[in-house]
Each structure stands twice: as C-alpha cells, then as structure tokens.
Design a protein around this nucleic acid. Sequence first.
DNA 1: TTTGGAATTGAGAGCGATCTCAATCTGCTA
DNA 2: TAGCAGATTGAGATCGCTCTCAATTCCAAA
Lengths: 337, 337
Amino acid sequence: MVTIYDVAKKTGFSITTVSRALNNYPDVSEKTKKLILEVADKMGYFPNSIARSLTMKKTFTLGVIFVEDLGIGMKHPFFSVVIEGFKQRAEKFGFDLVFINRFIGEDRKSYIDHAYYRGVDGVIVVCSHYDDPEVKKLIESPLPSVVLDVHSDQTNVIYSNNIYGCELAIDHLYSLGHQKIAHIAATDGSFTGKERLKGFGLALDKYGLTIDDSYIVNGGLFSYESGYNAMNRLLKLDDVPTAVFASSDTMAIGAIKAIKDAGLSAPDDISVVGFDDIELAQHITPGLTTIRQNAELMGRKAADLLINQINDEDEDFSTILLPVELIIRDSTKDITN
Amino acid sequence: MVTIYDVAKKTGFSITTVSRALNNYPDVSEKTKKLILEVADKMGYFPNSIARSLTMKKTFTLGVIFVEDLGIGMKHPFFSVVIEGFKQRAEKFGFDLVFINRFIGEDRKSYIDHAYYRGVDGVIVVCSHYDDPEVKKLIESPLPSVVLDVHSDQTNVIYSNNIYGCELAIDHLYSLGHQKIAHIAATDGSFTGKERLKGFGLALDKYGLTIDDSYIVNGGLFSYESGYNAMNRLLKLDDVPTAVFASSDTMAIGAIKAIKDAGLSAPDDISVVGFDDIELAQHITPGLTTIRQNAELMGRKAADLLINQINDEDEDFSTILLPVELIIRDSTKDITN
DNA sequence: TTTGGAATTGAGAGCGATCTCAATCTGCTA
DNA sequence: TAGCAGATTGAGATCGCTCTCAATTCCAAA
C-alpha cells in the first residue's frame, strides 16, 4: 500500500502539503497540486479510509439494522428492495453500507454499541418493532438515524400511508359488492400491523359496515404461515366472509393457499387483497390485487434524509409519508351480479 | 466515547496493561485483569474498531462484491439468499459485511481499490462474469477471496454441480417421455450459463438424442424477460419442443408466461424445468419443477472458506462443488400415454 | 539476606491520515 | 531597498489502539 508518506517523499513536499493537494484545498499552488496529483496517481495512491476515519471521526459508512422476527434477513421480499434503493443512493454520496448486528466479536452487545464500535456515521433501522427497547435507545441517541415504519418525533422516520392504503383496499372491495370483509392482521407489535388494523376499521366505518370481531383474525407475524393459518380460522366461521384484506402480501399469498386447500377458489369464492406489492404478487396465480408501497423510493428517501442529517447536524427531524397505490389484479372479483 | 485512556486513568494502570487485560492476554495478573475489566464495563467502554484496525491492519470486515447486469442487487432472488447465509456465518466469527462498489467518494475506481481503501480482510465475489477483467485482477491479487460460480485455481471457488443438475433435469424429462427438449441458455458470459449449456448437451448425448441447434435459444441475461422472449422464439418453430429446460428459474417463469400468453398450457402442452429453486418457484402456478441449489449452504461455505483463508495465510485454495437436487412440482408432465 | 528468573507493568513508537499554528516565500508599495 | 500582507509550505500534535522492548516487582532457592 502506498501511503501519503511515499507520495511526500517522491515529490519532496511535506505530507501536509500532499494531504492538502489530495483533498483539493485552496491553499496549495496550482503547480504543486498538479505535480502531487500526478505523482500520486502514477504511484497508485489512494487514501486509507481507516486512518482518515480515525482523525476525522467520520467513516463514510452507514449502518443497516435489520430487526425482524422471521430470521429471513436479506431474503425479505419487501425490505430487500428498500435496502437496495438505500444502498444505491448512499453510494452516490460516497457512503458504504455495513450491516450492524448485536455482537462485538463474540460478545452480545446492543445495536447501538456495535454502531459506535464501527463508527458508522448514521444508521437506517428497518422493520423495527414498535417498542423494541434497543431501537428506542438508538432513536434517542445522538447518532443520526432514520427509521422505517415507526412513528417518532426524535428521529427521521419514513413510512407509507398505511391508513390511506387500507381505505383504497376497502374502497375497491366495497365497489365490487363486498360487505363481509375480514382482515388478517399482523399483531407482532409492528407499527405497520397496527396502522393497517386501524385503517381497516376506519375504512369499514366509512361505509357504515359493522366490524365483526370474528372477522379480525390475529395473524401474528407477517408470514406465509400466519396468513395460511389465519385464513383457515376464517374458513371455519359459520358465516364465511366474501373478501379478505391481509396486512401483507406474504400473508395474502398464504391465505390464497388456504382457500385453495379448502377446495375453494380465490377470487370466485373469496376475494383477497394484500399489501406491499412484492415481486411475487404479480407472478402467482391469481395475480394478487394489492396496495403498492414504493419500496425503492422508501430506500432512496431514507438515504437522503440520513445523509442530510449527517451533514447538517442541527437539521430538524423529518417525517415522510409515502404514497400508496391500488394495484388491481385477479384475486378480487365483482360479486354484484 | 470512553477510550482506553479513560480506563487507564481510572484504574491507575498504563494503557498497555489495560489493552492487555481487555484482550485477555496471559501476562497480566488475574487481580488487575479483573479490576480493569470491571471498571471498563462500568464505564461502558468498548474498543474503537477504527483505531484497532489502523494498528492491526485487520478490520474484521468482509467485502461483498455483487457484479451483475440486471441491476437488481440485493433483490436477486438467488443471491440474496446466498448473501444472507454468508452474513450469518461471518457474523458468528465477528466479521461484519461491507458492500464494495466501484467508487471511492465520487471517483470511479476498481473493486479491488475500493476493497483496499476500506481495508476489508477478504471479499466474496458473487455473480461474476467469467472473464470480467476486474474480477480477474481481484482473484489474482493477494487479497483473500472466495468467488461463486466461477472456476479458478488462483482463489477459493464454490459452485453447484451444474452439470449433474442438467443431467437430473433431462433424466426427469426423458423419463416422462420427452424427446424434443429445448434449452433456454444464458449466454451472458457467466460460468453458470456456460456450464448448464454444456450439461444440457451432455445429458442429451447420454440418451442419444440429437441436439437441434434451433432448440438451443440464446436467452441472454438470467432474467424473466429473457426467458419470455426466448420461449416466444421456440413457439414460432415449425416443430415446437414438448419440453423446455431453462438455465434459471427466473427464465423458466418467463417462459411459462410466454406459453400461457400463446394460449397454451404448461405443463399440458409444454413441460418446463428451471434451475435454482428460488422462493418464487413453489408459489407460482404451476409450481415449478426445478433443480435446487442450496443457496444458504453456498453462503455459509463461502464464509468458512474465506475466513479460513484469512486466518491461515498459506492455506491452499479450495474448490467446493455443492450438490443439487431435482424438485418435482407441476410444470412437467408425463406424455407417454 | 542475596540472587536470578519469571511474572507483571510501563514508556514510547507506529499505524496513515488531518489539522493547527508557525515559518518561509512571494510580490508589491512606499 | 525595506517592509508587509498574502500566498505557500512544513513541523508536530492528534485520533485510539497494539506491540516491542525495557524496567520493575515478586518470590523461591541458595
């Protein structure tokens, strides 16, 4: 590795001057700057980020904290898209991504300790629980952060307009003649699950539909199995609903499977609406009608917000509400005639 | 941030001794070690990885290099699973993952420059092209590396038994009575694409089936669209094949779509076999018959190999061939009766 | 009580950069 | 030609840690 010392020796200037030239400071004469840059380039010099970080107390790395119960990590169909958007944007600004876990070496630590240990300039927290104490600690810490799918005044947050998304879903089902609409809720303590449950209630209210408790089934986690099991419970009801709104696409896909396994058809017997519009939604049969969240945009916005916060220390915290969109495919059906 | 100096001052020992105690060196008395550890813990001390890296020339980070033409990055249905396996394993050994791109700040650099800039201890190269010059440079460099889906004697490599996988696929189709078997090849310059094309040829040979050139369609990239377009070309043939073996699941799924769009059915008119067994494969209709690669295992093995290489500098390079498995679902059909 | 080797501890250099402050070098004015 | 401001350049500290080598302490054997 060629260091700044090597360049200094070769050019005859001091390391100070070399450093200045390399960083394009104004107080170096054009002539020497040109010379130094040339030599540095010829020698194949590039800075050592570690050494630089030590003095500057800035690493140009962003931490990714991925809290989730499913244990699927990067395989998550929605959040992997978010991360990719985040990554591409962050890289534009020269930031690299580091995954933050709860360990330092082999010792169990908190996320925040690990983030400080690595010296990341900021973190994005993905898929967090509403009241995870570690996330709370992190949000309240001075470390710049942006948190997805949580509401807070103490940091930057981004989430989709879940409430409106639910309204769109119910509007759609209602317009198709459905009145017996059930909800497969995610009650894993996530903000998203709560919001969508709330949005479901509000939307039913809008049409004066009564909310039958037995029509709200606790799906637990946002998983295929949860959706499958929840749907089976709905199918056992005396008065089976004609439509189901699931809190996520994964759940909806599980629900459709349960409907098929019961010898019924979606959408002929039961219409199903999901939430997220993951890649899979368009490929399954029937194509899943769902509420699209713009995952890529979520990632990009998160990067922008976080980097702004890092650069302007006293920037106020922002809350960004992203638009959602109804995507009509084949899992919902008009039952008016 | 509490540093080693703070702990030294508090305990009255020198930083040398504190460092030793913290790192569990044998040449500190039990008494002082215990005291130092206690105080450090009470003060909330943990090491600064940056400073440590600067002296040790080791960062305990692994670089992830994700070269692919599709631009989908972490959304890749197969490689995101590999990365997740790699990540979980690496974390067990105290390594964090950093994504390596081709930039340093805003300047275009090579992957290897970036890797050195970040000081990663090793890199995993995913989804690389057979003869990408940058990947080649990296493989030949002294930086420990493990490369997936490439063959090389100059570094550690891991890939699935593609040839055998093809044999399994053709065995299956042949046993169902198919003789007119086409291949949607990936000719994007990937090792995998080449191997599978070769494996396809070998398997046909085994049954003495002639290889009709028009039955081998150049799919280009491993993408849904490639599969779709390639299938359309096959459908235009005078003698349409009864079975298609696609070089990847994504392509196979695109092919099935093309078959449907042509008013035909998979598997009733044309049987389709994929390769990879991505998550989607089990959820689409018809469920995709495919050759399963163990992506998670691939990631884990990669981590083990890489970390071994890092720890034992003069370890020989390994080539690991992973087993594959035929997964029969509904996209293939017996046509003997 | 010496003594010598092992155990324990500490001083100081070094990792590769940035940054402050001081020194030197310009060129222009008086 | 002296003086001075502004432009260039450099010396040395610093970031937080590890590591080498030297110094000190300890304790059992002589």
